[in-house]
Design a protein around this nucleic acid. Structure first.
Length: 872
DNA sequence: TAATTCGCTAGACCGA
DNA sequence: TCGGTCTAGCGAA
């Protein structure tokens, strides 16, 4: 045995090649020696089949003999009986030489009547999961050999899709593994750019790969295009006018370390920061060179999945240029309703996808996800928007001022895209570590995918076979049979003082672990376990820990520890450790998603019983806590799912602490009631139909901080003037307890509205067009406005964010929809005063002041001379 | 290619 | 014209 070399490198990507009629795993790594592909010869594609116990070994032998007519290799490389059991059946692991064989075999096996499992896990993903590798982290491995790669083709579509195997000749066509070095003849004398050549020639063959912790980092290059506006937009239809490029280390958040930045254009005037090249062709060439600089690990865009890559590709084609990155043509894949652009080795990070994820998980909340809104919301930096027609005009006019504005805009687009990646990649690295998926995948994943990947990883490790994805009819059936959810207590309407808010820490995960809720522990055969029966009637094993509780418990513990360490470091050392923060954040996202996953109809591990038992116990615990609160002498004001609002009455904070302690002493281990905070005042309002409204309240803490929940103020489908006035009213009412000022405030706004003085931007109502306009049964104002805009030539479809205003409208009786117009078609001052008073301002503030004894008339007329004492 | 249910409100729609 | 019902959207947890 020769001496093998031990190496370390950061893992970026996994894929596979076809070589000697076998599929071989390739990993893309980076370390101080640069970026390179390595090969692992020891992993082959496989899936499982389940057969009756008696025939198992016989079947395994038969499978081994299966031949699909391939000249060089048998289709089945290996068939081994495993220790796993699925539904009382023995499980055989069937291994293949090639992915294409697997794809063929699973169809044939199905026709032969075999039950198949894990047959739809893509090969490279399978490898990462089985090997428990962590893209974004480092690996250590032995180099055992060097081989010359014969086939330098990377499989084009790593995804194994059971339904669609009918690859067209076009998509089947392999991509070149070699990037031709392009000689730069640019006149600026910077003949600097070298390009990388990948997977040509020798690659290292590696063995004994294991994860070692190492720092995350590497060079990221962000780019952004500005294109000419044509009559009708098509991808690549008009020339690229300007390109900005920003590069730096994505692992560094050092503000002092300057970015590498350049903005290039052609056919216009030179202004500061702008380089003028000979032609569009040179601009595109330069961009391609920048994207192929030696040490790039991440290419960052903002919506590059749907725009920048496709546009560059199309223009390059028209200009006769080859557009390759790291030796491969960027691949566009369908990804749900939109696209995803995959590069080989280098990770394409689309910061827009990152923002979408953060928006979905509630980490950010912004009406629009355009770069301008994100810049403002996430970084607190105003960024000016330049409209498409202004872009073209600036470029054509060669006006110095307009061009400078455009250059600034273009550059900032790349900067913001880059900064988002820098800021949030640590989170996705931690998710990647948990799920063993590449950053490319993780940044485009949904929370359910993350949970499922984690489960696939954890079950493989334990020798458990994953359930199959449900068929469509099963999905429909599950959907039609929803699970009863959480309990929400009807609040007491009105103003209240001295409120303590309690809540359960990680309620659902803690219930799942405490009661061992897991599909594999459901209704076990042991009599003794029936004492662990849910209010729902299902029970869970108390003798053997189930899969879900085992995983969750581990994650919960880790998170608690990380949070403690993060806090300690911050307090004692004054260090805001973003890696620690990202680690606990990643865990939080996964933990919070597990309950939803159990009740998600498309989940492999869907379990109606488990999800239902979780909420059943939730309702029991919250009712129990409410009861105990009242016994302890508190009055329960409100509660939603995991929270309990107490009126303290004559009690002290200490009493609350003691109460919480008392409750905790009786809770099962792992569950914990916490004090969320103490509030000076709070208000709940009465619904239109009577009764107090749930999920709507405002609280003010001892420092005067206002927390508004559920009210119009937090809803984007209400106009700013109504929202802001509501906030002021709440502030005045809660901070001073005297509503006269609030009434005055409303009157001032009413006056402004009546006088037609309110600006357009304060009247805009925002709503997402959820489907194409033709698909609506009921034409609401936003749909009507969209239809009118479409008639004027605007392109709007499902997912478009609409900003509209209710205008004065024309003659005759008109509905609100008739008067709704998109903001851009409305002149300042053209708004329906009555609508904004009656349907926006008043509804937002009335329900609040009504709790204090004021009526609509009090707001509209002279009003009461003396307000009621708010709490008299 | 999609985590869940609970809840509020507006405005269209529709029949009397 | 009125009032009940349905569609639609968004937020809380």
């Amino acid at each position: 045995m020769k001496n093998h070399l031990l190496e370390k490198a950061l893992l970026l990507d996994a894929n596979y090649i076809e070589e000697n009629n076998e599929s071989k795993i390739m990993l893309y790594l980076s370390n101080e020696n640069g970026h390179f592909w390595v090969k692992d010869n020891d992993f082959s594609p496989y899936f499982f089949v389940a057969v009756g116990n008696d025939e198992a070994s016989k079947t395994a032998k038969e499978l081994l003999g299966l031949n699909f007519g391939d000249a060089e290799r048998f289709c089945v490389k290996d068939a081994q009986l495993t220790n796993a059991i699925v539904k009382d059946k023995a499980v055989i692991k069937v291994t293949f030489f090639k992915v294409s064989h697997l794809v063929l075999a699973r169809k044939i096996f199905s026709e032969m009547g075999f039950e198949r499992y894990e047959y739809d896990v893509p090969f490279a993903k399978r490898y990462l999961l089985d090997m428990r590798l962590q893209p974004g982290n480092w690996i250590e491995y032995f180099v055992v050999d060097e081989e010359k790669i014969e086939s330098n083709k990377i499989n084009e579509d790593n995804k194994i899709n059971e339904v669609d195997n009918s690859k067209s000749a076009e998509s089947k066509k392999g991509v070149s593994g070699k990037f031709k070095s392009r000689v730069s003849n640019s006149s600026d004398g910077e003949d600097e750019e070298n390009t990388t050549v990948v997977i040509s020639g020798k690659v290292k063959v590696i063995k004994e790969i294991k994860v070692v912790d190492g720092p995350f980092g590497g060079k990221g290059v962000a780019f952004d295009l500005e294109t000419k506006m044509g009559k009708k937009f098509t991808i690549g239809g008009e020339p690229i006018l300007m390109v900005s490029i920003v590069a730096n280390d994505v692992g560094e958040l050092d503000e002092k370390k300057p970015n590498y930045e350049r903005v290039i254009s052609h056919g216009t005037k030179k202004v500061p920061k702008l380089e003028i090249l000979e032609s569009e062709s040179e601009v595109v060439e330069k961009l391609i060179i920048e994207l192929n600089k030696n040490d790039t690990s991440y290419i960052i865009t903002y919506n590059g999945d749907n725009f920048d890559f496709a546009y560059t590709k199309e223009r390059a084609k028209k200009l006769g240029l080859t557009f390759e990155v790291n030796g491969f043509v960027p691949l566009t894949r369908r990804h749900g309703l939109d696209n995803a652009v995959k590069l080989q080795g280098i990770q394409h990070i689309d910061s827009y996808q990152i923002m979408r994820f953060l928006q979905r998980t509630g980490a950010v909340n912004t009406a629009k996800l355009d770069i301008e809104s994100v810049s403002e919301k996430v970084f607190g930096e105003f960024k000016e928007k330049v409209l498409p027609k202004e872009i073209t005009e600036a470029w054509e006019s060669k006006d110095v001022k307009k061009l400078a504005r455009l250059v600034d805009y273009n550059l900032k687009d790349s900067r913001v895209a880059f900064r988002i990646a820098q800021q949030f990649l640590p989170l996705f690295v931690e998710i990647s570590k948990l799920t063993s998926q590449t950053l490319y995948d993780t940044t485009r994943s949904t929370t359910s995918q993350m949970v499922e990947d984690l489960l696939l990883k954890e079950t493989h490790y334990r020798g458990i076979i994953a359930p199959n994805k449900p068929k469509e009819n099963e999905v429909i059936q599950r959907t039609q049979n929803p699970i009863k959810g959480a309990f929400v207590k009807e609040p007491m309407a009105g103003l209240h003082e001295n409120i303590a808010v309690l809540d359960f820490a990680s309620l659902y995960p803690s219930i799942i672990t405490s009661h061992n809720i897991s599909p594999d522990a459901l209704n076990c055969a042991h009599d003794a376990c029936k004492k662990n029966i849910s209010p729902d009637g299902t029970w869970f094993c108390t003798k053997k820990k189930g899969l879900f509780p085992e995983i969750l418990e581990k994650l919960l513990k880790q998170r608690l520890q990380l949070k403690r360490e993060y806090k300690r470091k911050k307090k004692e050392e004054g260090i805001d450790d973003r890696v620690l923060f990202a680690k606990q954040w990643a865990l939080k996202i996964i933990l919070n998603s597990v309950y939803g996953y159990l009740g998600y109809p498309r989940a492999r591990w869907y379990s109606r019983e488990c999800a239902s038992a979780t909420t059943a116990w939730e309702r029991e615990y919250i009712h129990e806590t409410i009861k105990k609160s009242e016994v302890a002498g508190f009055k329960v004001l409100y509660g939603d799912t995991d929270s309990n609002f107490l009126l303290m009455l004559d009690k002290t904070k200490k009493d609350v602490e003691n109460f919480v302690e008392e409750v905790n002493s009786k809770l099962p281990e792992g569950m914990e009631l916490e004090i969320d905070g103490f509030y000076k005042r709070g208000i709940f309002v009465t619904k239109k139909e009577g009764g107090a409204a749930k999920k709507r309240y405002a609280l003010m803490d001892e420092k005067g901080n206002l927390k508004i929940v559920g009210f119009e103020y937090v809803r984007r489908d209400w106009c700013i003037i109504a929202r802001e006035t509501q906030k002021k009213v709440l502030e005045l009412v809660l901070s001073e307890g005297k509503p006269e000022k609030a009434v005055e405030c409303v009157k001032r706004v009413l006056k402004e509205l009546k006088e037609g003085k309110v600006e357009k931007k304060d009247l805009v109502i925002m709503t997402v067009l959820q489907r194409d306009t033709k698909d609506y049964d009921s034409i609401g104002p936003h749909v009507a406005a969209a239809k009118k805009a479409i008639a004027r030539g605007k392109e709007l479809g499902a997912g478009s964010m609409l900003s509209f205003i209710i205008t004065k409208g024309g003659k005759g009786k008109q509905s609100i929809s008739d008067k709704a117009e998109l903001e851009e078609y409305v002149k300042e001052g053209d708004y329906d005063v009555e609508y904004y008073i009656e349907n926006q301002l008043l509804p937002a503030v009335l329900k609040i002041v009504q709790e204090l004894g004021y009526s609509k008339e009090d707001l509209l007329t002279g009003g009461k001379q003396t307000g009621l004492n708010a709490w008299g």
